[in-house]
Design a protein around this nucleic acid. Sequence first.
DNA 1: GCGAACCTACCGGGCGGTCGGTAGACTACT
DNA 2: AGTAGTCTACCGACCGCCCGGTAGGTTCGC
Lengths: 228, 228
Amino acid sequence: MTALDNAALRAATGAANGEQDRRAEIYRSAARIFHRKGYHATSINDIAAAVGLTKAGLYYYIKGKQDLLFAIMGFAMDQLDEQVIEPARRVEDPQTRLETIVARHARLITQDSSALTILVNELEGLLPDDRADIIGRQRDYVDFIADTLAALRDEGKVLGLDPTVGAFSLVGMILWISRWYRADGRLDGDEVVAEVTRMAISAVLNRGEDSNAGNPARTGQPAKETRE
Amino acid sequence: MTALDNAALRAATGAANGEQDRRAEIYRSAARIFHRKGYHATSINDIAAAVGLTKAGLYYYIKGKQDLLFAIMGFAMDQLDEQVIEPARRVEDPQTRLETIVARHARLITQDSSALTILVNELEGLLPDDRADIIGRQRDYVDFIADTLAALRDEGKVLGLDPTVGAFSLVGMILWISRWYRADGRLDGDEVVAEVTRMAISAVLNRGEDSNAGNPARTGQPAKETRE
DNA sequence: GCGAACCTACCGGGCGGTCGGTAGACTACT
DNA sequence: AGTAGTCTACCGACCGCCCGGTAGGTTCGC
């Protein structure tokens, strides 16, 4: 049965070529299971079974449980770098940059939250050196957002908000998506991304600013003092 | 040494009375350790040692590891009910109610995040029935926030925001505090609570509203169109 | 016949949990 | 006052299980 699954799996992936595909599949499976059950609650056997191998067979591909976790987290950070940070870094205007960050990060999570979520939930499963590495990269990301908020403040678009608190709060909002969003749920992924992005922007911007530049419609109500 | 620690501990607690104090201390210690290392990475021995008992001694007070977790989560939900939901339920005005919710929840986390954080991070450690219980109570809380957002929408203070997405996003922002806030850090707990509350309100409100009703000071700049 | 890709069988160890005890405080009876 | 019984609050030793990891094959395509 195991052998059959294995063969079926190979056929399904297209019978292409060997080692790299298999290894990638292992990482993907492991990420999914770590995400669902948590790192410590997941056994090497769980992962091996999920990819149609025995434990010993799995060890042909991986060095150990902790290396596997570190590899997944590294992959997730790479994803964040490539799909969020780098594209955003090329955006000059701070507000547009912030929108880019939030939207791209949120989209990444609605598409496949496994690795990204493990990245924040399983840090204590790493060896100290590996943990330091990941935490450093995470801090860089938060600093990048904080710097963007500081730039917005310098433009007068943000008043009286500590950039660090702002950055963390936005990150919290985004990361939390993976806890409640279901691809098969009531809401479409793109809608969720749009909603969250709009909330994030208006959370940090001064009143009286248009939060969604370049977006037609939705100019419903001009800034107006109607209080009491 | 264990016996000494034990005795010292008793003396320190005031040599008051027995079982309830001890049990409370156990829950508190366990919550702290679960929070720091995670439920699955924490052994019964860890907890026993932390309270100056052997494993067998600890089992005099608890029924098992999962019951301990459930008890802690139940306590955390009770805290949330008593300190956040009930007080907020007595507030009629939706905006003030929302401010109450966010501020009180955030304050709870800056004061002692252990139990509250376990509540959201260790759900998969529970037995199915217990998990259903806790998840139900959590859903009630999110619904409560969503209803408040819906009420704000009916007042015209919120436009085009899905109450559910809004509620989840705010919760994410609040819960995330426990990941970055340190009591001994640069920022004062009250400042953080105030900042996050302000962000939360302006995240959901239309521009042109004053986000901190009844709060003197901090009226630095009236809503004004200064764009470009 | 040789290496890549696996397997079976096993290891030491730590886990959650239990069992049978027991020191000592506190009654209860004589 | 003495002592027998009882109960609370623990402890040392142990159990079975499963964990991460490994040693030493075996199969199979080239």
